[in-house]
C-alpha cells in the first residue's frame, strides 16, 4: 500500500541529493540542474499532498513552479552563455573575482 509517506520520503531523498549537487559541483550547468532537481522534489511533495487532500491547488502550484522553472532555464542559459563567452569555461570557481 503506497501512502503519502512514500512520496514524501522519496521527495526528501531527491531534495537532499539535489542539495549535495548544488553545493559540491563546479559546472554552472550541473549546479543549475541540481537546483532543478530540488524544485522537482518540491513539485512531488505538492502533488502528493494535493492528491492526499483531494484538492487541485497542489497541482496548480506545481504548474506555476514549472512555468517559473522554464523561465529560469531560459534566463540561466543566457547568463551562462554570456559567462562562457567571457571566461571560456562553465566552472563557477572562475567566478571568484570578488571575495569578502
Amino acid at each position: 500500500m503506497i501512502t503519502i509517506g512514500h512520496y514524501l520520503v522519496l521527495a526528501s531523498f531527491l531534495f537532499v541529493v539535489g542539495l549535495i549537487g548544488a553545493l559540491t559541483r563546479k559546472s554552472a550547468i550541473i549546479v543549475f540542474l541540481a537546483i532543478e532537481l530540488m524544485l522537482n522534489s518540491v513539485n512531488l511533495v505538492f502533488l502528493a499532498l494535493g492528491r492526499y487532500f483531494g484538492q487541485l491547488d497542489g497541482a496548480v502550484f506545481v504548474f506555476f513552479i514549472m512555468a517559473v522553472s522554464a523561465a529560469e532555464a531560459a534566463i540561466g542559459v543566457a547568463i551562462t552563455v554570456a559567462f562562457i563567452r567571457r571566461n571560456k569555461t562553465t566552472a563557477i570557481d572562475a567566478a571568484n573575482l570578488m571575495k569578502w
Binding site: 537546483i35 524544485l39 511533495v45 559567462f83 567571457r86 567566478a95 570578488m98
Partner: peptide, 24 residues
C-alpha cells in the same frame, strides 16, 4: 556577468528552500 550568474544560482537555490517550506 558574474554578479548575474551568482545571483541567479543562489536565488534559485534559496527559492528551493522557500518552496519546500511552503509545501510543508
Amino acid at each position: 556577468v558574474e554578479a548575474s550568474l551568482k545571483y541567479f544560482l543562489l536565488g534559485a537555490f534559496s527559492s528551493a528552500f522557500l518552496l519546500l517550506g511552503m509545501a510543508f
